[in-house]
Amino acid sequence: MKKTIFMLGIVSAILAGCESDEKIESLSQENNTTNVAARRSCASDEVLKEQMAKDPELARRISDIEVFTQRKLNENFESRLVNGVIEIPIVVNVLYRTAAENISQAQIQSQIDVLNNDFNATNSDYNNVPTLFSNVKANVGIRFVLDQVVRKSTKKTSWGTRDAMKKSAQGGLSPISPTTKLNLWVCTIGGGILGYAQFPGGSSATDGVVIDSKYLGTTGTATYPYNLGRTATHEVGHWMNLRHIWGDATCGTDYCNDTPSHNTANYGTPAYPHYSTCTGNPVEMTMNYMDYVDDRAMFMFSADQKSRMLAIFQAGGPRYSFAQ
Rank of each mutant, 00 (worst) to 15 (best):
M1V: 10
M1A: 14
K2P: 09
M7P: 05
I10R: 10
I10Q: 13
C18E: 08
S20W: 02
K23M: 08
E25D: 11
Q29I: 05
D45I: 14
K49V: 09
K54H: 05
E57L: 14
I65T: 11
E66R: 13
Q70G: 07
L73Q: 01
N74V: 12
E78S: 14
R80S: 12
R80M: 14
R80D: 09
V82T: 04
V82N: 07
N83F: 07
I90Q: 03
V92H: 03
R97Y: 06
A99P: 00
A100Q: 07
A106S: 11
Q107A: 13
V114L: 08
N116M: 10
N117K: 13
F119V: 02
N120L: 10
N123S: 13
S124M: 06
V129S: 04
P130L: 08
F133I: 07
F133N: 04
K137F: 04
K137M: 10
R143I: 03
D147P: 05
V149N: 08
K152A: 14
T157I: 10
S158K: 03
R162Y: 14
R162A: 14
K167W: 06
P175F: 13
T180A: 13
I189P: 02
G201Q: 06
S203A: 12
T206M: 06
T206Q: 09
G208R: 01
D212N: 12
Y215L: 12
L216I: 15
G217Y: 01
G220C: 06
Y224D: 04
L228R: 07
T231R: 13
A232K: 01
N241W: 09
R243Y: 10
T253N: 12
C256M: 05
D258G: 08
T259K: 01
T259Q: 00
N263S: 15
P270Q: 08
Y272C: 04
Y272E: 00
Y275R: 05
S276D: 03
V283I: 09
T286W: 06
Y289R: 11
D291S: 13
D294W: 15
D294C: 08
F301Y: 07
S302D: 01
A303R: 02
Q305D: 00
L310E: 02
F313N: 03
Q314N: 10
A315R: 03
Y320K: 13
